[in-house]
């Protein structure tokens, strides 16, 4: 994208053009801060963390911010939702960057900062709120396009709904250990050759152990005229019993 835009700018007559090929991931990897846009901070489906002391947070904070003072981050980091995007601000950008590194190390991937912390937020015209702090995180992942909800999926596994079938795309040895009793098992690498075994007049709800392989299978099946949806969930099976 950057190279094609550079080409277009050149056509417009710009004479001095460079491209930062390593891009946003390269900048983040080098340990430099990236920032969240104002609308993302105020309305995005994020976890906004105020790293300052609880007293400061009580006195004034960005709306929706959860208070996790930096000194307590280490004990709370394991309980943070793995898939959530995080936006941080603290006393200083250095403090926020330290927190970002700790969170990266704990396996959290999507983290950016409020530029200039609370002062920067106020300067950019952002609103603030005050009073007792919020310490509990209420974040729910938004369903992706093509995903099946847990409720719809379970209605088929327990036989309540008959408008869909369950497709298990885990490997043979994984499904041999256990599977949903009414599931059709076709490992992902065989889906291309064996899709004839699937009904075209019913929806197909696909699961694996996390959702990654199910997503790939759904894309392939939808290309070929099936109505396939994937389940994003950790699935563990033993005999005829699976836990999600």
């Amino acid at each position: 994208m950057s190279t094609s835009s550079a080409g277009q700018a050149k056509k417009m007559g710009y004479k001095n053009i460079r491209v930062y090929l390593d891009g946003e991931p390269g900048w983040d990897k080098a340990g430099y801060p990236t920032y969240a846009a104002k609308g993302f901070i105020s309305k995005g489906n994020i976890v906004l963390i105020d790293l300052r002391s609880a007293e400061k947070s009580v006195a004034g904070r960005i709306p929706r911010a959860v208070s996790i003072p930096y000194a307590t981050l280490n004990e709370k980091v394991a309980s943070l939702p793995q898939k959530a995007p995080f936006v941080l601000y603290g006393d200083t950008t250095d403090q926020a960057m330290s927190a970002l590194k700790d969170m990266h190390e704990a396996g959290l991937k999507k983290i950016s900062l409020v530029q200039g912390n609370l002062d920067g937020w106020i300067k950019s015209g952002g609103e603030t709120t005050s009073g007792p702090v919020v310490t509990t995180i209420e974040w729910k992942r938004q369903m992706e396009k093509g995903e099946v909800s847990m409720a719809d999926f379970l209605n088929v596994t327990n036989g309540k709904a008959t408008d869909a079938v369950i497709l298990d795309v885990r490997n043979k040895d994984e499904s041999a250990e256990g599977k949903f009793k009414n599931a059709i098992s076709i490992p992902l690498d065989q889906v291309g050759n064996r899709m004839g075994e699937l009904p075209k007049d019913k929806k197909i709800y696909i699961h694996c152990t996390t959702g990654a392989r199910a997503d790939m299978a759904a894309k392939e099946l939808n290309n070929r005229g099936y109505k396939a949806f994937f389940l994003v969930a950790d699935v563990k099976c033993k005999a005829n019993d699976c836990t999600i």
């Binding site: 994208m1 950057s2 190279t3 835009s5 550079a6 700018a9 417009m12 007559g13 710009y14 004479k15 001095n16 053009i17 460079r18 491209v19 930062y20 090929l21 390593d22 891009g23 946003e24 991931p25 390269g26 900048w27």
Partner: peptide, 14 residues
């Protein structure tokens, strides 16, 4: 001013 430096980036090394 078309003499000014532009730097483009996106989300990857390609």
């Amino acid at each position: 001013n078309k003499d000014e430096l532009l730097v483009f980036y996106c989300g990857g090394p390609t």
